[in-house]
Amino acid sequence: MSASRVVVVMGVAGTGKTTVGRLLAAELGVPYAEADAFHPPANIAKMTAGTPLDDADRAPWLDAIGDWAERHASGGVVSCSALKRAYRDRLRAAAPELFFLHLTGPRGLIAERLAARRDHFMPSALLDSQYATLERLEPDEQGAEVSVEAEPHTLAAAALEVLPPLSA
């Protein structure tokens, strides 16, 4: 992939979006953004308290990520849960050429990884709400799924393989 598209590394909490996103951005030589940095303080407080975000909470967050993607249309990687089709559509409204890399894996493995995280506001108790919200990529969406059962460097390499070439 040439550096003229933004890749959204998506999935539920604990799939390794940040780790894989940083590795992928480094491999592609493009900027990386962590979507958690776009959350307003009220969202972080809500999640820290164990309360799932609703669509209204996510709207300004998704708009900020969409703005970043639009500004980096020449190439970038951003991690973002992008759990619903409507959220991905909102991001695509700002940056139509987005490619969604959906990190997937067994719930037990993801729960273990999430429980082992330290210094993160997202409690493992919210994993079920993330799965309840998750809508898998549909055939008309630019994207691919990659299993998180491998090590991060292997995942990043697999991600590079599924990124389609850009048409000239």
Score class of each variant (00 low, 15 high):
residue 4 S to Y: 03
residue 5 R to M: 07
residue 6 V to S: 02
residue 7 V to F: 01
residue 12 V to A: 09
residue 12 V to L: 10
residue 12 V to H: 03
residue 12 V to E: 04
residue 16 G to I: 15
residue 18 T to S: 15
residue 18 T to R: 07
residue 22 R to C: 09
residue 23 L to H: 02
residue 23 L to A: 07
residue 26 A to I: 14
residue 26 A to M: 13
residue 29 G to C: 04
residue 35 A to H: 01
residue 40 P to G: 08
residue 41 P to Y: 04
residue 41 P to E: 07
residue 46 K to V: 13
residue 48 T to N: 08
residue 49 A to T: 11
residue 50 G to S: 12
residue 53 L to Q: 00
residue 53 L to E: 02
residue 53 L to F: 01
residue 54 D to E: 10
residue 54 D to M: 07
residue 54 D to Q: 09
residue 55 D to Q: 11
residue 56 A to D: 10
residue 57 D to A: 15
residue 57 D to P: 01
residue 58 R to K: 08
residue 58 R to M: 03
residue 61 W to E: 01
residue 62 L to T: 12
residue 62 L to W: 03
residue 65 I to A: 14
residue 66 G to E: 00
residue 66 G to D: 02
residue 68 W to E: 05
residue 70 E to M: 13
residue 71 R to T: 11
residue 72 H to R: 10
residue 74 S to H: 09
residue 85 R to H: 07
residue 89 D to A: 14
residue 90 R to G: 02
residue 90 R to I: 12
residue 95 A to H: 08
residue 96 P to C: 12
residue 97 E to Q: 09
residue 97 E to A: 12
residue 99 F to K: 08
residue 100 F to E: 04
residue 101 L to G: 00
residue 102 H to I: 13
residue 103 L to E: 05
residue 103 L to D: 04
residue 109 L to R: 08
residue 111 A to H: 09
residue 113 R to W: 05
residue 114 L to C: 06
residue 118 R to G: 07
residue 119 D to N: 11
residue 119 D to C: 04
residue 123 P to M: 10
residue 124 S to E: 11
residue 132 A to H: 08
residue 132 A to W: 04
residue 133 T to C: 00
residue 134 L to N: 01
residue 135 E to L: 05
residue 138 E to M: 10
residue 141 E to Q: 08
residue 141 E to D: 06
residue 142 Q to L: 09
residue 142 Q to W: 04
residue 143 G to V: 12
residue 144 A to M: 06
residue 144 A to H: 06
residue 145 E to L: 13
residue 148 V to N: 11
residue 148 V to S: 10
residue 151 E to I: 10
residue 154 T to E: 07
residue 155 L to A: 06
residue 155 L to K: 01
residue 156 A to M: 05
residue 163 L to D: 04
residue 163 L to W: 03
residue 164 P to R: 09
residue 164 P to A: 13
residue 166 L to N: 03
residue 166 L to I: 15
